Computed example of a mutant assay.
Amino acid sequence: MRWLLNIWRTLTKPAKYLTLGAVSLSAFLMGIIFWGGFNTALQATNTEEFCISCHGMESMPYQELQKTVHWSNHSGVRATCPDCHVPHEFGPKMARKLEASHDVYGWLFNTINTPEKYDEKRLEMASREWKRFDQNKSLACKNCHDYKSMKWDSMSKLAQKQMKRAAETDQSCIDCHKGIAHTLPNMGTARAPELIAEVGLGVTNLKVGQSYFSSLTKPLFLNENTDVEAGTLNIATKVKILEMKGNRAQIGIEGWRKKIGAGRVIYYDFGLNILSAQLTKDAALEKGVINTFEEKEDPMTGLIWQRVEADLWIEADYLLSDLQPLWDYARGTYNTSCSVCHTQPAPAHFDANTWPGMFQGMIAFVNMDQDTQALVQKYLQEHSSTFDKSAH
C-alpha cells in the first residue's frame, strides 16, 4: 500500500518547477495521444478481420454472407460486417460497443462455437438484430440504399408499388427484406419469428387435463397418426389436453358455431365472430369430432347458434400456459405498427364484431405476417367494447 500512497502524494503535490503553460501543454499532448490510441483501438474493432477472428462468426455467418448479393454483385460494392452491424455516428456506435459485451460473453463461454449451437441461437440473434434495425428504421441499410436515389423505372410494377409506398413512410427495410444477407432461422411451423422469440416455444411437458393457449395458428388432425389436415386452430385459442401420444396431443376446443351448413367454424362465444378453429367439411361431419350442447337464437341475425366442443389432434408444440404474453405482444405490435398513418383507435372503441372489418382496412398499410395479423385482430376483439365498457 505504501507505493500507492507515494504515487498519490506525487500526483497531488503542486508543481514546483513546471509552469501553468507547461502543465497545460502536457495535458493537451497527453489528450491527443490518449484520443489517438482510443480511436485507433476503436477502429480496429470495426473491421471485418476483427469480426471474423471469432471462430463462430467466421465459420457460420461469414460463410453465409459470401453466398449473397451483398458479397458479390454487378456493381462491385461489398457490405462488410461493421457496415451493417455498427452505426456510423459516434453516440450510437459507442452504445453498440457496450452491447457487444454480450458477444464477448458468448465468445468466452463458447455459446455459438459449433454449427449446432449457432443454429439453436439463430432465431434469438436474428430477432435481436431485426428489432434493432426496426428501431432505427434500418439506418445501416439506408447508409447505402436511399429511397431518393432509386430508379423506379427499372423495377417491376409490383416492386414500384411496394417500394414507393415504403418510401412515403420511410419504412424500415428489414420489414420486407429479412434473410437477405444471412440464412433465415429454421422456424419450423413458426411464421412469426419475432412473436415466437418474444413469447417462447411453449410448454415442453404438457399435462393431461390442463388448459393451454396456442401461440401460433396450428393444423388440426383427426387422429395421432394421419398427416391429412382436418382444419386449423386459431392463434390465442384456449384448448384442454385430453390425451398425449408421442409428439401429438388430443385437445378439446370449446366454443359456439352457427347451425348452418356443416357448421365448420368454431367461435369464441355466442354471437361473437372471434375465431377459435376452422374445420374442413369432412372433419366437421365426422362422427364424434363435434359434440353439441345447448342452442340459442341470435336476436341480431336470427341465426341459431350451438354450444360445442370439438375433439381433435395437434402437434404438441407452441402451446403456452399463460395468455398474457400473447396479449402483451399484440398490444405492442398494434401500438407501433398501426400508428404509422394516424393515431389508432383504442381497442374498446369498437365492439368485437366491428373490429375485423376495421382492422382489415388497416393492415394494407403495414407489414405483418398472417399469425401476427390474426393475433392482433383477436386481441382487439377480446379487448373491445363488448368486454370493456369503459370507453362507451
Rank of each mutant, 00 (worst) to 15 (best):
residue 236 A to D: 12
residue 56 G to F: 09
residue 268 Y to H: 08
residue 97 K to C: 01
residue 202 G to R: 10
residue 294 E to P: 03
residue 85 H to V: 09
residue 336 T to H: 00
residue 61 P to I: 13
residue 359 F to Y: 12
residue 307 R to G: 13
residue 132 R to H: 03
residue 90 F to S: 06
residue 7 I to D: 15
residue 325 P to S: 04
residue 88 H to I: 15
residue 346 A to E: 09
residue 198 E to M: 11
residue 193 P to M: 06
residue 250 Q to C: 01
residue 75 S to N: 15
residue 364 A to H: 05
residue 328 D to N: 15
residue 4 L to P: 04
residue 102 H to I: 14
residue 60 M to D: 11
residue 26 S to E: 08
residue 351 D to Q: 08
residue 134 D to L: 02
residue 61 P to E: 11
residue 214 S to F: 10
residue 78 R to E: 04
residue 282 D to I: 09
residue 174 I to C: 01
residue 57 M to P: 08
residue 171 Q to P: 11
residue 343 T to A: 09
residue 220 L to K: 01
residue 208 V to R: 08
residue 277 A to C: 01
residue 207 K to Q: 15
residue 230 A to K: 13
residue 378 K to H: 06
residue 164 K to N: 08
residue 44 A to W: 03
residue 302 G to K: 00
residue 227 D to W: 14
residue 287 K to N: 13
residue 204 T to H: 09
residue 239 V to Y: 00
residue 365 F to P: 07
residue 292 T to L: 04
residue 220 L to E: 01
residue 232 T to Y: 05
residue 360 Q to N: 13
residue 341 C to L: 14
residue 351 D to W: 02
residue 136 N to E: 12
residue 157 K to P: 04
residue 180 I to S: 11
residue 79 A to W: 08
residue 175 D to N: 13
residue 367 N to E: 14
residue 336 T to Y: 00
residue 352 A to Y: 06
residue 372 T to E: 15
residue 87 P to S: 02
residue 241 I to K: 03
residue 259 K to C: 02
residue 74 H to Q: 10
residue 134 D to I: 00
residue 72 S to W: 10
residue 168 E to A: 11
residue 289 V to K: 04
residue 357 G to C: 12
residue 202 G to C: 08
residue 140 A to Y: 05
residue 211 S to M: 02
residue 170 D to K: 15
residue 193 P to K: 03
residue 99 E to R: 07
residue 148 K to W: 00
residue 347 P to H: 02
residue 316 A to P: 04
residue 134 D to N: 09
residue 333 T to V: 05
residue 166 A to S: 12
residue 219 P to A: 07
residue 238 K to I: 06
residue 20 L to I: 11
residue 245 K to I: 03
residue 355 W to Q: 03
residue 158 L to A: 08
residue 42 L to W: 11
residue 126 A to G: 02
residue 1 M to R: 08
residue 230 A to N: 05
residue 254 E to I: 06
residue 168 E to H: 10
residue 378 K to N: 02
residue 160 Q to I: 06
residue 373 Q to A: 14
residue 126 A to N: 00
residue 46 N to D: 02
residue 191 R to T: 15
residue 354 T to H: 04
residue 19 T to Y: 06
residue 210 Q to W: 04
residue 177 H to R: 05
residue 335 N to C: 12
residue 231 G to P: 11
residue 296 K to L: 07
residue 6 N to F: 02
residue 70 H to R: 01
residue 350 F to C: 00
residue 17 Y to P: 03
residue 309 E to R: 15
residue 164 K to F: 07
residue 186 N to Y: 13
